[in-house]
Design a protein around this nucleic acid. Structure first.
Lengths: 216, 216
DNA sequence: CGAAGTATTGATAGGGGTCAAGCTCGGTGG
DNA sequence: CCACCGAGCTTGACCCCTATCAATACTTCG
């Protein structure tokens, strides 16, 4: 939940009565916010930038998701974080102390409701990712990924998808290798579906074509 | 949330005042409870048996999970189910009418809290599955699956894992083919890690060995 | 401009998919 | 009771998609 959203639900006067429950923090690119298995002391919302959530297994990495401005991260069921978080580019976060945050949730039912809704949305997203990882080809994965990112971040220029994460991060998100991601990007470019002028972004030339590749 | 758990949180006298919010329903093996995309009218808890949750993509199938007695299914964020549900063996469910269930949640904060906790637990489980599908080998996937099932269902006989689902269901859960699942089971058997006397179950001969295969 | 990290491209190989053939076992009917 | 049948499971042979290994370009930054 974004701080603004929290304020919206609570109202500023109520929030003021709660005292200083939140503070802002900045992360530079590559900085780690917390590690999987750490005791969960804080909950965070993204204000600026992008972070990746990931799990490690003896050298192998699975990026479970990317968090963008407005996203809530760090909620844990068993007071241990279930994944690690690292900033992809400079990021700015709202930090909520864990049980203060829970206190707010308990004090304001609409907040708790909103958090539940978000968790269910997140669940649906992750389950779509299961289908991608379990059953889609490399081409389909990359095309799906581009469409997902387009849906999330393309405010303003509707064709341009910012891709601040590295090719390795994309590969680790899609269950592929860097080489396969790179080759697939090239293939989609040669087919005229995307333009890769900037390396940290892609311009979509045919959403229909991309959709056709993503879900045959 | 299991009906019993609901009763536990609410207390029977409170529940009685709510009127008939719940009824019981049985499904025979292979019966479909609902399809992905259907308008979400009900929420369900499993009383008996096992059901599979799955998503389809032009013939391909991804089983996102198996629900066991006590599990809550059918919560949707956008009033459309995010997956299909089919009974694996005869199953018995508690059915809650969707907005009645939400009414109960709103009336009893501890219930809503419990549902949030469950959703977060579910989220953590699914994210572990992302790591499995994105980064584990067939051997690791099968071994991990066996350990997961052992942790969930082995009350009583600690070594025996009931596997009421078909090999195809297991394959669709692990992002593999039936053949690979079968070959891998055979390999683990020949290595002395499991015994496959019954086809709808497995006896674990070495949990340590299985763990070593699951997470190298 | 040089160095180091990141991305692309090429050549090769292997893990798991595909296709096809037996095997098992529970159910059915003579 | 048992022969038969069919669905599900196992095993084998072969192949393909993607991983791996290696070399080359590009980009960023001191």
């Amino acid at each position: 939940m974004h701080a603004k959203a929290v304020c919206h639900v609570l109202g500023h006067e109520q929030l003021a009565r709660l005292g200083p429950v939140m503070h802002v923090r900045t992360l530079s690119g590559g900085a780690v916010l917390y590690h999987e298995g750490d005791r969960a002391r804080g909950v965070f919302t993204i204000r600026q930038g992008m972070v990746k959530l990931y799990k490690l297994l003896d050298g192998r990495c699975q990026v479970t998701g990317f968090a963008l401005p407005g996203d809530l991260i760090g909620l844990a069921q068993d007071d241990r974080y279930a994944h690690s978080v690292e900033a992809i580019e400079g990021a700015e976060l709202c930090c909520w102390e864990q049980h203060r945050f829970c206190g707010v949730l308990n004090a304001f039912p609409p907040m708790k409701h909103a958090v539940l809704e978000r968790s269910l949305l997140e669940l649906a997203t992750v389950q779509r990712q299961l289908l991608l990882l379990g059953r889609k080809t490399a081409r389909e994965r990359v095309a799906t990924f581009l469409l997902q990112m387009a849906a999330r971040v393309c405010r303003g220029r509707p064709n341009f998808i910012p891709l601040p994460m590295s090719r390795t991060d994309i590969a680790d998100h899609l269950g592929l290798t860097v080489e396969t991601v790179s080759r697939t990007f090239t293939a989609l470019r040669k087919e005229g579906l995307i333009d890769l002028g900037d390396r940290r972004g892609a311009r979509v030339l045919s959403f229909d074509g991309l959709r056709a590749v993503a879900e045959p």
